[in-house]
Nucleic acid binder design. Structure first.
Lengths: 158, 158
DNA sequence: ATAATTTTAATTGCATACAATTTAATTGTA
DNA sequence: TACAATTAAATTGTATGCAATTAAAATTAT
């Protein structure tokens, strides 16, 4: 077992690198399938939210997807141009953007139904590993979410 | 246990989504640390290869990092502009680009030594989960690599 | 009520990523 | 040897992603 001075800087000793690679590769598996629907992966996860709720405030969508306005704004405008969503202001708070699925956007859901099966079939993962992975990543993502929303258990000092 | 028609299209039932989010979040943890070195995460993993080998063909680097020339070419030019690598053609095959670390690039290794510790400390993962994750992602990445290099066990037909 | 603060999107700038194409060099073949 | 096929980078075009800033609306404090 090597334990050199720079051992933790070796690519094969990283945890982050396989995470980065696997995420890219898996997202890449969606590409040909989503091409058929005319959407990208980022647009797909946004539509998942809308398929469930029909509409959502941009702020909340960003929190759910871990994306900020710099990514969401242009992406949602593209989705609007494609006719899958509408963008409108909340009359009660003109700062907020309401994103809603159009009928055409809702119709995509039917075409997307096969996607999870087809992607699953080309992810090289045993059922046990898939289950374990889901658990680990789920806990990890929950921690990240908690970091972002610092619940103020105590009053701020001063 | 809900099993609706569209249940596999719910965000919370995805395996890919937490993978995508966790990869982004973890890479994000590197950002402030690598800012101090003047490099990005992609540049960091490229330097990891060069710190070990001093030089590598661009083709091989792309295979190791799962990146193509469309990503590598501009990134390596930036690294060259920063003085961390040199780009030169292989005299034996003018198509190949040889990427080599400069002394300054090699010196970055010393400054980077702390990075893995500091990142590790802010990744919300138990030691057991980290170990399991490394195993699962390692197997997964190996499968993706195998997909890419189709070892021709049999002669092609015709 | 008015000013200061906060909140939410939008914008700007920079760095990936990847598909598809192009260019140059090399190899295989008739 | 010519010529076709292959290979490796580079280029082009599109879509993220995120930090930092800006702009507008709403809230809070005075």
């Amino acid at each position: 077992m090597p334990e050199g001075e720079y051992d933790l800087l070796r690519l094969e000793n990283q945890l982050c690198f396989p995470l980065y690679v696997c995420a890219k590769e898996v997202v890449g598996k969606y590409r040909p399938l989503l091409d058929a629907l005319g959407i990208t992966y980022t647009q797909y996860i946004a539509m998942m939210v809308l398929w469930e709720r029909r509409s959502v405030r941009a702020k909340e969508l960003g929190e759910m997807l871990f994306l900020d306005s710099g990514t969401l704004t242009p992406m949602l405008k593209k989705m609007e141009a494609k006719g899958y969503v509408t963008r409108s202001r909340d009359p009660g708070d003109e700062r907020s953007l309401i994103v809603a699925a159009t009928d055409e956007g809702m119709a995509l859901r039917e075409k997307a139904k096969e996607v999870p099966y087809r992607v699953g079939s080309c992810i090289p993962l045993s059922p046990e590993d898939a289950l374990a992975l889901q658990g680990i990543l789920g806990r990890m993502m929950a921690s990240f979410r908690a970091e972002r929303s610092p619940s103020p258990m105590l009053l701020p000092v001063s």
